[in-house]
Protein backbone atom coordinates (compact mmCIF):
# COMPACT_ATOMS: atom_id res chain seq x y z
CA UNK A 1 0.00 0.00 0.00
CA UNK A 2 2.70 2.49 1.02
CA UNK A 3 4.72 1.65 -2.06
CA UNK A 4 1.70 2.12 -4.26
CA UNK A 5 0.89 5.42 -2.66
CA UNK A 6 4.37 6.82 -3.12
CA UNK A 7 4.32 5.80 -6.74
CA UNK A 8 0.89 7.26 -7.17
CA UNK A 9 1.69 10.66 -5.78
CA UNK A 10 4.78 11.04 -7.95
CA UNK A 11 3.59 12.70 -11.15
CA UNK A 12 4.54 11.05 -14.39
CA UNK A 13 6.75 13.28 -16.62
CA UNK A 14 3.97 14.25 -19.00
CA UNK A 15 1.71 15.30 -16.17
CA UNK A 16 4.27 17.45 -14.41
CA UNK A 17 3.44 20.58 -16.36
CA UNK A 18 -0.31 20.13 -15.86
CA UNK A 19 0.27 19.67 -12.14
CA UNK A 20 2.34 22.82 -11.93
CA UNK A 21 -0.33 24.78 -13.77
CA UNK A 22 -3.57 23.42 -12.32
CA UNK A 23 -2.58 21.60 -9.11
CA UNK A 24 -2.46 17.91 -8.26
CA UNK A 25 -6.12 17.22 -9.07
CA UNK A 26 -7.12 19.43 -12.01
CA UNK A 27 -10.42 17.51 -12.13
CA UNK A 28 -11.37 19.49 -9.04
CA UNK A 29 -11.83 22.52 -11.26
CA UNK A 30 -14.36 20.61 -13.33
CA UNK A 31 -16.25 19.47 -10.22
CA UNK A 32 -16.35 23.04 -8.91
CA UNK A 33 -17.35 24.53 -12.26
CA UNK A 34 -21.17 24.32 -11.89
CA UNK A 35 -21.12 25.85 -8.41
CA UNK A 36 -18.65 28.55 -9.44
CA UNK A 37 -20.78 29.40 -12.49
CA UNK A 38 -23.85 29.57 -10.24
CA UNK A 39 -22.10 31.93 -7.80
CA UNK A 40 -20.97 34.23 -10.60
CA UNK A 41 -24.32 34.22 -12.39
CA UNK A 42 -26.67 34.48 -9.41
CA UNK A 43 -24.55 36.46 -6.93
CA UNK A 44 -21.50 38.23 -8.34
CA UNK A 45 -23.01 39.53 -11.59
CA UNK A 46 -26.35 40.72 -10.11
CA UNK A 47 -24.40 42.34 -7.28
CA UNK A 48 -22.39 44.41 -9.75
CA UNK A 49 -25.53 45.03 -11.81
CA UNK A 50 -27.37 46.40 -8.74
CA UNK A 51 -24.60 48.86 -7.98
CA UNK A 52 -24.38 49.89 -11.66
CA UNK A 53 -28.16 50.33 -11.86
CA UNK A 54 -28.23 52.61 -8.84
CA UNK A 55 -25.96 55.11 -10.69
CA UNK A 56 -27.92 55.06 -13.95
CA UNK A 57 -31.34 56.09 -15.18
CA UNK A 58 -32.65 52.54 -15.46
CA UNK A 59 -36.23 51.72 -16.41
CA UNK A 60 -38.18 48.78 -17.78
CA UNK A 61 -38.25 48.91 -21.58
CA UNK A 62 -40.16 46.75 -24.05
CA UNK A 63 -38.33 43.45 -24.67
CA UNK A 64 -35.67 43.81 -27.37
CA UNK A 65 -35.87 47.59 -27.51
CA UNK A 66 -32.53 49.44 -27.57
CA UNK A 67 -32.76 52.23 -25.04
CA UNK A 68 -30.32 54.69 -23.61
CA UNK A 69 -29.63 54.43 -19.88
CA UNK A 70 -27.50 57.44 -19.06
CA UNK A 71 -25.20 57.74 -16.07
CA UNK A 72 -26.86 60.00 -13.52
CA UNK A 73 -24.35 60.01 -10.69
CA UNK A 74 -25.97 60.27 -7.30
CA UNK A 75 -29.38 61.31 -8.65
CA UNK A 76 -31.10 58.08 -7.53
CA UNK A 77 -29.57 58.39 -4.08
CA UNK A 78 -30.80 61.99 -3.83
CA UNK A 79 -34.30 60.81 -4.75
CA UNK A 80 -34.14 58.06 -2.13
CA UNK A 81 -32.79 60.21 0.69
CA UNK A 82 -35.26 63.00 -0.05
CA UNK A 83 -38.20 60.57 0.18
CA UNK A 84 -39.84 60.70 3.64
CA UNK A 85 -41.26 57.20 3.05
CA UNK A 86 -37.75 55.81 2.67
CA UNK A 87 -36.50 57.58 5.77
CA UNK A 88 -39.46 56.19 7.70
CA UNK A 89 -38.76 52.65 6.45
CA UNK A 90 -35.12 52.84 7.54
CA UNK A 91 -36.25 54.17 10.93
CA UNK A 92 -38.74 51.30 11.21
CA UNK A 93 -36.13 48.65 10.47
CA UNK A 94 -33.84 50.22 13.08
CA UNK A 95 -36.62 49.91 15.68
CA UNK A 96 -37.14 46.34 14.52
CA UNK A 97 -33.44 45.46 14.89
CA UNK A 98 -33.11 47.19 18.28
CA UNK A 99 -35.88 44.96 19.66
CA UNK A 100 -35.38 41.80 17.62
CA UNK A 101 -31.61 41.27 17.81
CA UNK A 102 -31.03 41.59 21.58
CA UNK A 103 -34.22 39.61 22.30
CA UNK A 104 -33.12 36.85 19.92
CA UNK A 105 -29.59 36.60 21.31
CA UNK A 106 -30.70 36.65 24.98
CA UNK A 107 -33.53 34.13 24.60
CA UNK A 108 -31.55 31.83 22.32
CA UNK A 109 -28.60 31.67 24.72
CA UNK A 110 -30.80 31.16 27.79
CA UNK A 111 -32.83 28.40 26.18
CA UNK A 112 -29.73 26.73 24.68
CA UNK A 113 -28.03 26.63 28.09
CA UNK A 114 -31.14 25.20 29.74
CA UNK A 115 -31.67 22.71 26.92
CA UNK A 116 -28.04 21.66 27.12
CA UNK A 117 -28.49 20.71 30.77
CA UNK A 118 -31.95 19.20 30.56
CA UNK A 119 -31.97 15.43 30.43
CA UNK A 120 -35.61 14.45 30.37
CA UNK A 121 -37.80 15.48 27.46
CA UNK A 122 -34.93 16.87 25.45
CA UNK A 123 -36.35 15.65 22.13
CA UNK A 124 -39.76 17.16 22.85
CA UNK A 125 -38.23 20.49 23.84
CA UNK A 126 -35.98 20.61 20.78
CA UNK A 127 -38.89 19.88 18.45
CA UNK A 128 -41.00 22.55 20.15
CA UNK A 129 -38.31 25.22 19.77
CA UNK A 130 -37.42 24.37 16.18
CA UNK A 131 -40.92 23.94 14.74
CA UNK A 132 -41.57 27.67 14.13
CA UNK A 133 -38.25 27.89 12.31
CA UNK A 134 -39.07 25.09 9.87
CA UNK A 135 -42.59 26.42 9.19
CA UNK A 136 -43.34 28.87 6.38
CA UNK A 137 -43.77 32.52 7.43
CA UNK A 138 -46.93 32.67 5.34
CA UNK A 139 -48.46 29.85 7.43
CA UNK A 140 -47.61 31.31 10.84
CA UNK A 141 -48.70 34.79 9.71
CA UNK A 142 -52.17 33.29 9.28
CA UNK A 143 -52.43 32.26 12.92
CA UNK A 144 -50.85 35.49 14.20
CA UNK A 145 -53.44 37.51 12.32
CA UNK A 146 -56.12 35.41 13.99
CA UNK A 147 -54.56 35.72 17.47
CA UNK A 148 -53.86 39.46 17.29
CA UNK A 149 -56.88 40.75 15.37
CA UNK A 150 -58.93 43.36 17.23
CA UNK A 151 -61.40 40.73 18.48
CA UNK A 152 -58.83 37.91 18.56
CA UNK A 153 -57.89 35.63 21.43
CA UNK A 154 -55.14 37.90 22.79
CA UNK A 155 -57.46 40.89 23.13
CA UNK A 156 -60.24 38.70 24.53
CA UNK A 157 -57.85 37.51 27.25
CA UNK A 158 -56.59 41.02 27.96
CA UNK A 159 -60.12 42.39 28.21
CA UNK A 160 -59.98 46.07 29.20
CA UNK A 161 -56.17 46.00 28.97
CA UNK A 162 -56.27 45.40 25.20
CA UNK A 163 -54.50 48.19 23.29
CA UNK A 164 -56.60 50.65 21.34
CA UNK A 165 -56.19 50.73 18.37
CA UNK A 166 -55.44 47.04 18.33
CA UNK A 167 -51.93 45.58 17.87
CA UNK A 168 -51.52 45.41 14.13
CA UNK A 169 -53.29 48.67 13.34
CA UNK A 170 -51.51 50.59 16.10
CA UNK A 171 -48.69 52.82 14.82
CA UNK A 172 -46.59 52.42 17.97
CA UNK A 173 -47.13 48.69 18.47
CA UNK A 174 -47.11 47.25 14.93
CA UNK A 175 -43.35 47.21 14.37
CA UNK A 176 -42.37 46.01 17.88
CA UNK A 177 -44.93 43.21 17.55
CA UNK A 178 -43.43 42.15 14.22
CA UNK A 179 -39.98 42.20 15.88
CA UNK A 180 -41.20 39.85 18.62
CA UNK A 181 -42.97 37.67 16.07
CA UNK A 182 -39.80 37.26 13.97
CA UNK A 183 -37.74 36.53 17.10
CA UNK A 184 -40.18 33.73 17.99
CA UNK A 185 -40.10 32.42 14.42
CA UNK A 186 -36.29 32.33 14.08
CA UNK A 187 -35.28 31.40 17.62
CA UNK A 188 -34.83 27.67 16.91
CA UNK A 189 -32.07 28.33 14.40
CA UNK A 190 -30.14 30.51 16.84
CA UNK A 191 -30.59 27.99 19.67
CA UNK A 192 -28.97 25.50 17.30
CA UNK A 193 -25.98 27.80 16.80
CA UNK A 194 -25.58 28.30 20.55
CA UNK A 195 -25.90 24.56 21.25
CA UNK A 196 -22.99 23.95 18.86
CA UNK A 197 -20.92 26.58 20.67
CA UNK A 198 -21.78 25.16 24.11
CA UNK A 199 -20.30 21.77 23.15
CA UNK A 200 -16.91 23.48 22.95
CA UNK A 201 -16.91 25.15 26.37
CA UNK A 202 -14.20 23.37 28.44
CA UNK A 203 -15.80 21.62 31.41
CA UNK A 204 -12.80 22.49 33.60
CA UNK A 205 -13.96 26.11 33.56
CA UNK A 206 -17.25 25.15 35.23
CA UNK A 207 -15.38 22.89 37.64
CA UNK A 208 -13.01 25.59 38.85
CA UNK A 209 -15.84 28.13 39.02
CA UNK A 210 -17.84 25.69 41.16
CA UNK A 211 -14.83 25.08 43.40
CA UNK A 212 -14.54 28.86 43.83
CA UNK A 213 -18.11 28.78 45.11
CA UNK A 214 -19.76 30.42 42.10
CA UNK A 215 -23.55 29.97 41.91
CA UNK A 216 -25.48 29.05 38.77
CA UNK A 217 -25.99 32.68 37.75
CA UNK A 218 -22.32 33.56 38.36
CA UNK A 219 -21.19 30.52 36.35
CA UNK A 220 -23.46 31.61 33.52
CA UNK A 221 -22.10 35.16 33.57
CA UNK A 222 -18.43 34.47 34.07
CA UNK A 223 -18.00 31.19 32.19
CA UNK A 224 -20.77 30.62 29.64
CA UNK A 225 -21.27 34.13 28.28
CA UNK A 226 -17.54 34.82 27.59
CA UNK A 227 -16.98 31.30 26.23
CA UNK A 228 -19.73 31.57 23.61
CA UNK A 229 -18.83 35.12 22.59
CA UNK A 230 -17.80 34.12 19.03
CA UNK A 231 -21.20 32.44 18.63
CA UNK A 232 -22.88 35.59 19.95
CA UNK A 233 -21.10 37.64 17.28
CA UNK A 234 -22.37 35.20 14.65
CA UNK A 235 -25.91 35.21 16.06
CA UNK A 236 -26.04 39.01 16.18
CA UNK A 237 -24.73 39.39 12.63
CA UNK A 238 -26.99 36.71 11.15
CA UNK A 239 -30.01 38.10 13.02
CA UNK A 240 -29.20 41.61 11.73
CA UNK A 241 -28.87 40.44 8.12
CA UNK A 242 -32.04 38.32 8.34
CA UNK A 243 -33.91 41.18 10.01
CA UNK A 244 -32.84 43.68 7.35
CA UNK A 245 -34.41 41.28 4.80
CA UNK A 246 -37.84 41.72 6.42
CA UNK A 247 -40.61 41.57 3.83
CA UNK A 248 -43.24 38.85 4.30
CA UNK A 249 -44.40 39.92 7.77
CA UNK A 250 -45.14 43.60 7.07
CA UNK A 251 -46.52 42.68 3.65
CA UNK A 252 -49.06 40.24 5.06
CA UNK A 253 -49.52 41.04 8.77
CA UNK A 254 -50.03 44.77 8.45
CA UNK A 255 -51.45 44.89 4.95
CA UNK A 256 -48.35 46.23 3.21
CA UNK A 257 -46.54 48.18 5.91
CA UNK A 258 -49.45 49.91 7.60
CA UNK A 259 -50.76 51.71 9.51
CA UNK A 260 -49.56 54.88 7.73
CA UNK A 261 -46.27 53.24 6.80
CA UNK A 262 -45.44 52.53 10.45
CA UNK A 263 -44.28 49.00 9.62
CA UNK A 264 -42.89 49.48 6.11
CA UNK A 265 -39.51 47.82 5.72
CA UNK A 266 -36.84 48.85 3.18
CA UNK A 267 -37.27 45.60 1.20
CA UNK A 268 -41.03 46.12 1.05
CA UNK A 269 -40.31 49.62 -0.26
CA UNK A 270 -37.90 48.19 -2.85
CA UNK A 271 -40.74 46.00 -4.09
CA UNK A 272 -43.21 48.89 -4.17
CA UNK A 273 -40.88 51.46 -5.78
CA UNK A 274 -39.01 49.05 -8.06
CA UNK A 275 -41.65 46.70 -9.38
CA UNK A 276 -45.05 48.21 -8.58
CA UNK A 277 -44.08 51.78 -9.54
CA UNK A 278 -41.48 50.80 -12.18
CA UNK A 279 -38.40 52.52 -10.78
CA UNK A 280 -35.79 49.73 -10.48
CA UNK A 281 -32.93 52.24 -10.30
CA UNK A 282 -34.41 53.85 -7.18
CA UNK A 283 -35.04 50.40 -5.69
CA UNK A 284 -31.42 49.43 -6.40
CA UNK A 285 -30.25 52.57 -4.60
CA UNK A 286 -32.40 51.62 -1.56
CA UNK A 287 -30.80 48.15 -1.71
CA UNK A 288 -27.26 49.54 -1.81
CA UNK A 289 -27.99 51.87 1.13
CA UNK A 290 -29.55 49.00 3.08
CA UNK A 291 -26.53 46.77 2.51
CA UNK A 292 -24.12 49.57 3.46
CA UNK A 293 -26.17 50.06 6.64
CA UNK A 294 -26.18 46.34 7.46
CA UNK A 295 -22.43 46.02 6.91
CA UNK A 296 -21.80 49.08 9.11
CA UNK A 297 -24.07 47.71 11.85
CA UNK A 298 -22.38 44.31 11.68
CA UNK A 299 -18.96 45.90 12.01
CA UNK A 300 -20.05 47.99 15.00
CA UNK A 301 -21.60 44.92 16.62
CA UNK A 302 -18.47 42.92 16.05
CA UNK A 303 -16.32 45.63 17.60
CA UNK A 304 -18.59 45.86 20.64
CA UNK A 305 -18.89 42.11 21.10
CA UNK A 306 -15.26 41.22 20.61
CA UNK A 307 -14.07 43.86 23.04
CA UNK A 308 -13.36 41.82 26.13
Amino acid sequence: MTVHLTRGTQPRPGHRRVTALLGRHPVGLALMAPYAAYLLLVFAYPFGFAVWMSFHDYFFAAPGAQVERPFVGLENYRTVLGDPGVRQAFGNILVFLLINVPLTAALALTLAVALNQAIRGRTFLRVAYYVPYVTASVAVVGVWLFLFSSDGLVNTLLGPLAPDPSWLVNETLAMPLIAVFVAWKQLGFFILLYLAALQNVPKELYESAAVDGAGAWQRFRSVTVPAVRPATTLVVIVATVTGANLFTEPYLLTGGGGPNGASTSPVLLMYQRGLEQGAPDVAAAIGVLLVVGVVALSMINRRLLERS
Binding site: M32, Y35, A36, L39, V42, F43, A44, Y45, P46, F47, F49, A50, M53, F60, V241, A244, N245, F247, P266, V267, M270, Y271, G274, L275, P280, A283, A284, G287, V288, L290, V291, V294
Partner: peptide, 23 residues
Protein backbone atom coordinates in the same frame (compact mmCIF):
# COMPACT_ATOMS: atom_id res chain seq x y z
CA UNK B 1 -13.03 29.72 -4.78
CA UNK B 2 -13.50 28.94 -1.10
CA UNK B 3 -13.14 32.64 -0.28
CA UNK B 4 -15.78 33.39 -2.91
CA UNK B 5 -18.12 30.90 -1.21
CA UNK B 6 -17.59 32.64 2.13
CA UNK B 7 -18.15 36.04 0.55
CA UNK B 8 -21.43 34.97 -1.03
CA UNK B 9 -22.88 34.23 2.40
CA UNK B 10 -22.43 37.88 3.28
CA UNK B 11 -24.18 39.25 0.16
CA UNK B 12 -27.76 39.81 1.26
CA UNK B 13 -30.48 38.57 -1.03
CA UNK B 14 -32.38 41.87 -0.85
CA UNK B 15 -29.74 43.69 -2.88
CA UNK B 16 -29.96 41.04 -5.61
CA UNK B 17 -33.74 41.16 -5.78
CA UNK B 18 -34.13 43.86 -8.42
CA UNK B 19 -31.22 42.82 -10.69
CA UNK B 20 -32.25 39.15 -10.50
CA UNK B 21 -35.79 40.14 -11.42
CA UNK B 22 -34.50 42.17 -14.38
CA UNK B 23 -32.21 39.34 -15.52
Amino acid sequence: LFNLVLLVQVVPFQLLLIPLYVL
